[in-house]
Simulated scan of single mutants.
Amino acid sequence: MYINGQDQMIKEQIISRGIQDSWVIKAVSEVPRELFVPNELKSLAYEDSPLPIGYKQTISQPFIVAFMTESAGLDQNSRVLEIGTGCGYQAAILSKLCKEVYSIEVLKPLGEEAAIRLKKLGYKNIHLRIGDGYKGWPENSPFDAIIVTAAPEDVPQALIDQLKEGGRLIIPVGTFVQELIRITRIKDKIKKENLMPVRFVPMVKEPIVE
């Protein structure tokens, strides 16, 4: 049931909606989404919608995950920072495409659950930490790409600073009205592109340990 659902998801939600990068499509097809959602929601794992994963957080709809991944312009040598580990689904897909994935989760219980899940599933190139995503992961910067899975009111300067030359930041920005944007670092300047209107949970500023 899940396998057929995943095949249908790839055809109807990924390819038919314009995702063209064959490596992104392959990565999404290799990560079973039902393993990253609560047991009671597994029957909905391949629906075209976000799903709750606890702690007032969600797993993004499959198309958005694929679109953000494709927009980051990754390859097998990329080192990527993800802000907002959540259940670990986006990190798992990134791990299929990249050399190293660094992922930060502000909610300790959610981050710990994701760490256990990803280890159990055998992902070895994902490095997790609990912390404030606004600060990034400076000791492991610069990154080829940074993907943010929650929406701040403004783009954190620390994340721009942690991009390497030519690096891309994919981030939803705004409160009630949000826009997914791509920021590319070009020498001492940045190039900003509006990609699409979106709706993400707010980006929390301080680590929550309970």
Rank of each mutant, 00 (worst) to 15 (best):
E210R: 12
N140F: 11
K120V: 09
W23E: 13
N125G: 06
V80N: 15
Y55E: 05
K192Q: 06
I126R: 13
G54R: 10
R79H: 11
V80T: 10
K119L: 07
I19E: 11
V173H: 02
C98Q: 04
I130G: 07
K26F: 09
R117V: 00
E47R: 05
L44F: 05
K99L: 10
K164C: 15
V37S: 00
V155F: 08
R199G: 04
A114N: 00
Y2Q: 07
L97W: 10
Y123V: 06
N194G: 09
P207L: 11
R182E: 14
K96F: 07
I15E: 14
K189A: 10
V198C: 08
E112N: 11
D75C: 13
Q57T: 02
G133C: 07
A115N: 09
W23P: 01
T85N: 08
I3P: 04
Q178S: 12
E100I: 12
G174R: 12
V209Y: 14
L159D: 08
K42Y: 01
G73K: 09
G167L: 12
Q76Y: 12
V177H: 15
I104F: 08
E193N: 04
F63G: 03
V209K: 15
I171C: 09
A66E: 02
M203F: 02
I116H: 06
K96Y: 10
F200H: 01
H127A: 05
V148L: 11
I160C: 06
N4Y: 11
S22E: 13
S43P: 01
M196G: 00
H127I: 10
M68V: 05
R17N: 10
E47V: 04
I181R: 15
L195Q: 07
N4L: 15
D161V: 11
